[in-house]
Amino acid sequence: MLAESLALSAVLFTIGVVGVLTRRNAIILFMCVELMLNAVNLSFVALSKLYGATGQVFVIFVMTVAAAEAAVGLAIIIAIFRHRQTVHLDDINLLKG
């Protein structure tokens, strides 16, 4: 089932990319990133059957980092919302120097 798993992983990742490119809502963007991370996790798990348990260890790391990212990211979104009353990315151009 390796081929199918990897194919599924690629499809889910692509859907995540398309979501990032098409959505404006910051929270949904985050969720899309989570979807991409999940797709990668699936690849790790699938390949761990071929190459050993290290893949599963990496999944744990990915989840941890995803949790940290979600925590900080959502905190930032809350902070921005407090100032701007919006989470629409097109209204936010603070990155412009």
Partner: peptide, 13 residues
């Protein structure tokens, strides 16, 4: 350099 994440995402992808 628009400052909009959307653009950066596009460029990145």
């Amino acid at each position: 350099q628009t400052g909009r994440i959307g653009t950066y995402a596009w460029v990145l992808v």
